[in-house]
Design a protein around this nucleic acid. Sequence first.
DNA 1: CCTACCGATCGGTAGG
DNA 2: CCTACCGATCGGTAGG
Lengths: 194, 194
Amino acid sequence: MIRDAGISKRDNVIKQATRLFREKGYASASMRDLAKKLGIEAASLYSHIKSKEEILQHICFEKADAFNEKLNELEEIKNNNEKRLEQFLIGHVEVLLSDTDSSAVFLNEWKHLSEPHYSRLNKMKDEYESKLIDIYREGKVEGKFIDLNEKLSVLTMLSSVNWVINWYRPTGTLNPHELAKALAHRIIHGIMTK
Amino acid sequence: MIRDAGISKRDNVIKQATRLFREKGYASASMRDLAKKLGIEAASLYSHIKSKEEILQHICFEKADAFNEKLNELEEIKNNNEKRLEQFLIGHVEVLLSDTDSSAVFLNEWKHLSEPHYSRLNKMKDEYESKLIDIYREGKVEGKFIDLNEKLSVLTMLSSVNWVINWYRPTGTLNPHELAKALAHRIIHGIMTK
DNA sequence: CCTACCGATCGGTAGG
DNA sequence: CCTACCGATCGGTAGG
């Protein structure tokens, strides 16, 4: 049985499910696959969890909560929306990198949630993105950012940073915070030397 | 029966399948769903196509070919890698926008291909990205681009532009070429006014 | 956590 | 393009 020390059986089921959902996709991952990973029979899973979708719900809402918490930790910076944007992006990347498996499932599999969970998460995502859109809009008013549709700009930025989960390895030379800073700088200032 | 004028029955099956795969994901989309969309019985699909995966293969390789063709149309520009990068990104976005349904399936569902198709497409993707990586590397040598890992830079750029398929609507004010230009400019020069 | 099993649904075939 | 159907697999339950 694959089992990490210090976490409950239920937590371990969820952890292995997260890896499996990431690898095969939620719809293609079967409860029998998951059971095999854990060295038990499929039926035995149901003493730890209520359903396959309950696992997906747990992963998605835990991650959504983590993004919101990071948001609340941001210091209020007045009249410097470049700095505010940078701080936001850095926090976002830090949450992404804290667990790339759950981040990947959150980003790619959440559409498989049933109602009312789907709509609830959709609303949470909208509210999160709105915070970033506000920053961009205020930065434009401030004369800092170029004139682009705020929503499209912000979502393009997010899709750019979200991609980091596909190549980040904890063994690399940059730690998550340094990497987050480098990514945010590149989005804001582009890639030209001058 | 939903049927566009001027295309064969097989083409129509593939077209509706593309929309369905995009909406529900390849694994979650059933052949019975597809048949219902077309107003026929599931068994009747098999007089037009050999298997569900054959449809996915068709979508993915047709799209991969389109990206490669656009690549071959690029004019050779010497000693101006900023321009070369811009041209590459513009062409890429134009192919994406030529059919956002097939682009979405290509980008998100290709991992469901079986061997040897999976490996073949993977190789095509690698070769395509290598062309872009070369441009970035040469731009660095030229002193134009800032010093970043070429592969990571390029893949972050692509994930940023790939996201355009999620919000582009043909009814908008910008045509595909204009939109592609605006996106490429933003990636290269960032969002700051000065 | 197991054995035994359920109804539903899957991709696909035979034969017309 | 249909009816009729197949074996495989799915998520999940009963009862211990």
